[in-house]
Design a binder for these strands. Structure first.
Length: 947
RNA sequence: GCCCGAGUGGCGGAAUGGUAGACGCAGCGGAUUCAAAAUCCGUCGCCGCAAGGCAUGCGAGUUCGAGUCUCGCCUCGGGCACCA
């Protein structure tokens, strides 16, 4: 061989690793273990470049740790249940199972040429009955321990297709296929009691030292611990057997600003009124329209309905305030009822202004003025009707102090120190005409209270006067796991008229999904499958019905890491194996999983421990977490429309009622280009058919201009996702350049935690570099240097590189490790050191490169006389003696600007440095004979002369 | 709307509060070659002939010194409980 030929060397070394069993995880009590895991993929059909990035990172860690002497577990599996398989069955026919296993086979074939150090003997898919049967067994254990229960919960309901929709299937509040306005509907569903663990899951975050701070923060916010006041507001007249409304608030200090009480449309009182009065029913129906996501609810127009009922203020029973039903109040949060304080809450403020409810301030900012109308205070600057006492010159407003929206006072929470006054703002007249409380909490002791102190004081007041209790609540809700879909793990219970809900007997597990199902109608085929659905009761034997809901796919991914420690055990886990391999030492995955997947896994590990499936040490299953950035790409949407029942390309004709529709196009299907400041895309097939010369954007824009109605929308880069079709197939890079080029390419340049927009430019250059390393190795004997005097310099650079690359890999700074390897390669190429030394240096370089480019590394290792496999060689150690520098270059700043530099002995005393600095030409010139005002010497780093 | 991030040359990016732009890509100039490919050498933030000045999304602040710390904005991305 006379050149670098990845097509020849890559399969060769992959066979060698396999023959040597390099990657088989061995339970070896004599050695420390290291478990590295990348979040397993959904088998969409083809790997994309994001997978290559993710799995190469894990592979670098796995290979590095293996070289460091650890017994490494590095497994791979498939998160194989979920909606895309059902969608494929609906669109193209076929069975989700065939589609899924076909995709798995394809993706495995695509991953293997990457040369990942994966123990494929542990591979499984979550849709394997062997796996989901163990999951069902654990579900029954969870039932026994009271970790699972049923209750009513809302789903997105498509009234035309008569089916439950996932949030993803709700687009602008409408069903994705039917286009019908989605409703919120209640169903009885299964729940895990994750909220019982809220406090523990929150506290344990502190122990996760090797998790990114931002992930811990996101989880803490998600769990959302709050200290607040729960209290009863009594109805002036009992209604439907209810005489009070329980309200929870995190802002009890604003109690005196209450001007209305709001309840959820699903509150028992609202339900009662709904049954009595058609206008309430009509309002509640309207309020239930739209999706169930928090985003949809928060951003929907605020709607309210005055029930006519009134409640008494807990502090001032003479004060009666109205009860409204409002669409932004969720039954799931708190008690499903709030008191509205429009003076200090933006949402309540908007609501009050819309419906003409009073806005009553409870406090004012200390030492700040309150103003009314825009224009009254010319010394203030105004922005959107809000006055600001100070403005920074330039862009935006800051320091909002004097607050007024229109003529209505409004104080946001940002102000830390507030002043609670018995009669804030002197609004006596206003309260006489409006139903605000006339008695006031005496908050004068807190005239300089911060928000938190005032909240504590208000809770203390409520408890002392017996109208409320301080409680700690969590935002975290129980985990609804029921899905009304086929392609998921069946919930192993049977509904019996006499026995109720009965778990399936464990010996009958797995409850297998039936194969004979059709997806021609919407909805869950299990519901329509009598021979699968109708079974005898496991307890009494009478005819009964299987549960037809399946489990959320998050359940599957909440314990796969534990299953990898004993993937074929006859129980969910094998405790001896779990004891050795757990925890996952390094978990790697996308930031998009920062909250749900990781929180569910943390809960599941605890539940598994309670049921005896995991040792106590594994309740936090992931010791260290790294969240890699996403690979993004532009999204292309092609317009089309349907006229007279026929699909036609392009936008619908102007002035027609026909809607323009869009479909996604893959990057490879379009020619994208920039013209002026805009991005354009054309269908590749059309450009090619028309024979347009693509080398000049001018031609492309002319082609576009000739057919404006077909303009493809180019959306900004977003996470690669199959549903948006903005995925790039890495297979052609691998086929053309080899796996090592693909691996080196994704590890260089971008820091792994950052998102990258994919661009293929540079793969050529990457391969050139690898070929250069190969050539440098091959040429050592032919053109080997002769100057042994240079040996020491080369070795010194080598040891510096060992230290830097090791630090880079340890710190997940792969791009910096790669940069150091480039640097050393340049040093090596220029060095005229002896052939013997060069051989040693090159062999070590191969080792340092081996986690990223393992095939090339083996080849170079062998060429330079390395024994055995690099994969088995111990990681090189930097000799501390070789890292010592004797001199250092100190930049000299004059007034903070660099003006000169000096080279001094590394340990020269500051006093000596000062002497040299003061004698420096540039410094003397700047000083012009005067003494410096100040002279700062930072040993080993910098000198600053202040004039 | 709420929570969490990110923003540095033409591009990807580097920089324990201490020389902004390591390293790579692209570009430009040169060597080699009949020519090209490949390879090698050099150059490369912006303005300026130069001295020098200006530069890390925008505006303030702290500091001898700020890409880095603080405050306020802007833009983009992720998550928001049934996408995985």
């Amino acid at each position: 061989m006379s050149r670098y030929d990845p097509a020849e060397i890559e399969p060769k070394w992959q066979k060698a690793w396999e023959a040597a069993g390099c990657f088989t995880a061995r339970h070896d009590p004599a050695r420390p273990k290291y478990y590295v895991l990348e979040m397993f993929p959904y088998p969409s059909g083809r790997i994309h470049i994001g997978h290559v990035r993710n799995y190469t990172m894990g592979d670098v860690v796995a290979r590095y740790k293996s070289s460091c002497g650890f017994s490494v577990l590095h497994p791979m599996g498939w998160d194989a249940f979920g909606m895309p398989a059902e969608n494929a069955a609906m669109e193209r026919g076929g069975h989700p199972k065939d589609w899924t296993y076909g995709n798995i086979a394809q993706m495995r074939d695509q991953m293997k040429p990457l040369g990942l150090s994966i123990d494929w003997s542990r591979e499984f898919a979550t849709c394997d009955p062997e796996y989901y049967g163990q999951q069902q067994s654990m579900f029954i254990d969870f039932m026994e321990k009271g970790l699972v229960y049923r209750k009513a919960a809302v789903v997105n309901w498509d009234p035309v297709d008569m089916t439950v929709l996932a949030n993803e299937q709700v687009i602008d509040g409408k069903g994705w296929r039917s286009g019908a306005e989605v409703e919120r509907r209640e169903l009885t569903q299964w729940f895990f009691r994750i909220s019982d663990f809220a406090g523990e899951l929150l506290e344990a975050l502190d122990g996760l030292k090797d998790w990114p701070e931002k992930v811990r923060l996101m989880q803490a916010n998600w769990i959302g611990q709050s200290r607040g006041l729960q209290m009863a507001w009594h109805l002036t007249a009992p209604h439907a057997g209810m005489d009070r409304i329980e309200v929870y608030t995190t802002r009890p200090d604003t109690l005196m600003g209450a001007s209305f009480l709001g309840i959820s449309p699903d509150h028992p009182l609202a339900r009662a009124l709904e049954a009595e009065r058609p206008e309430v029913a009509a309002f509640c129906a309207e309020a239930r329209k739209g999706g169930t996501t928090e985003e949809a609810i928060e951003t929907a127009e605020k709607l309210g309905f005055d029930t006519g009922l009134k409640v008494r203020h807990p502090v001032d029973p003479d004060c009666e305030i109205p009860v409204w039903i409002a669409n932004f109040i969720l039954m799931d949060y708190g008690t499903g009822a709030i008191f509205g304080c429009p003076g200090h809450d933006q949402r309540d403020h908007d609501f009050a202004r819309k419906y003409g409810l009073p806005i009553i301030p409870a406090f004012k900012p200390r030492d700040k003025e309150v103003v009314s109308e825009e224009g009254e205070r010319p010394d203030l600057l105004w922005h959107d009707g809000v006055g600001y006492a100070s403005f920074d010159k330039g862009s935006g407003p800051s320091n909002p102090v004097a607050i007024c929206i229109g003529s209505i006072p409004y104080i946001p929470w940002k102000i830390e120190v507030v002043e609670y006054l018995p009669n804030p703002f002197g609004l006596t007249t206003q309260t006489e005409h409006q139903p605000g409380p006339k008695k006031h909490l005496d908050m004068s002791a807190f005239s300089e209270a911060t928000g938190d102190e005032a909240i504590d004081a208000a809770i203390a007041h409520a408890e002392a006067h017996g109208y409320g209790t301080g409680v700690t609540k969590y935002r975290l809700r129980d985990w609804g796991l029921s899905r009304q879909r086929y392609w998921g793990c069946p919930i192993p219970v049977v509904h019996c008229e006499s026995c109720g809900v009965v778990p399936e007997k464990k010996e009958n597990l797995p409850v297998r999904l039936p194969d004979d199902v059709s997806f021609e109608q919407p909805g869950n085929p299990l519901d329509r499958h009598p021979t699968w659905r109708d079974v005898p009761c496991p307890a009494c034997g009478k005819p009964a019905r299987r549960e037809t809901d399946t489990m959320d796919t998050f359940v599957d991914s909440s314990w796969y890491y534990a299953r990898f420690t004993a993937p074929h055990a006859k129980t969910p886990t094998d405790l001896a194996e779990a004891e050795y391999w757990m925890n996952v030492d390094q978990y790697i995955g996308g930031i998009e999983h920062a909250i749900l997947h990781l929180l569910y896994s943390r809960f599941f590990a605890r539940a598994m421990h309670i049921c005896g499936h995991l040792p106590a040490k594994a309740v936090e299953p992931f010791d260290a977490l790294f969240t890699q950035g996403m690979v993004t790409h532009e999204i292309f949407e092609e317009p089309y429309h349907i006229a007279d029942g026929v699909e036609r390309p392009g936008h619908s004709p102007i002035n027609s009622d026909i809607p323009t529709r869009y479909r996604y196009r893959m990057p490879e299907e379009v020619v994208a280009f920039t013209y002026g400041d805009s991005r354009y895309a054309l269908l590749r097939a059309e450009v090619e058919a028309a024979g347009v010369d693509r080398s000049d954007p001018e031609n492309l824009i002319n082609f576009q201009t000739s057919r404006p109605h077909t303009r493809i929308e180019v959306r900004p880069p977003a996470k690669m996702s199959k549903s948006k079709k903005n995925v790039v197939d890495p297979m052609d890079i691998i086929a053309r350049y080899g796996a090592d080029t693909a691996r080196w390419f994704v590890m260089s340049d971008s820091p792994p935690e950052r998102d990258v927009e994919w661009t293929a430019a540079g793969a050529d250059a990457t391969q050139k570099h690898l070929a250069r390393v190969w050539r440098l190795a091959a040429e050592i004997d032919v053109r080997g240097g002769t100057d042994t005097a240079q040996d020491q310099a080369l070795l010194k650079a080598l040891h510096r590189t060992i230290a830097d690359v090791t630090a880079g890999i340890e710190g997940f700074a792969f791009n910096k490790a790669v940069a150091k390897l480039y640097e050393f390669t340049n040093t090596f190429a220029k060095s005229d050191a002896s052939a013997a030394t060069k051989r040693v240096a090159m062999r070590t370089l191969a080792q340092l490169m081996s986690p990223m480019v393992p095939h090339l590394a083996e080849e170079v290792w062998t060429m330079t006389g390395g024994e055995g496999l690099v994969a088995r060689a111990p990681w090189p150690k930097a000799d501390p003696a070789m890292l010592v520098e004797n001199t250092v270059t100190l930049p000299i700043q004059i007034n903070g600007k660099r003006r000169a530099e000096i080279v001094v002995a590394k340990d020269l005393s500051p006093t000596e440095v000062e002497k040299i600095v003061l004698a420096d030409e540039a410094v003397m010139k700047a000083l012009a004979g005067a003494a410096p005002k100040k002279l700062i010497v930072v040993p080993g780093r910098i000198v600053n002369v202040v004039l």
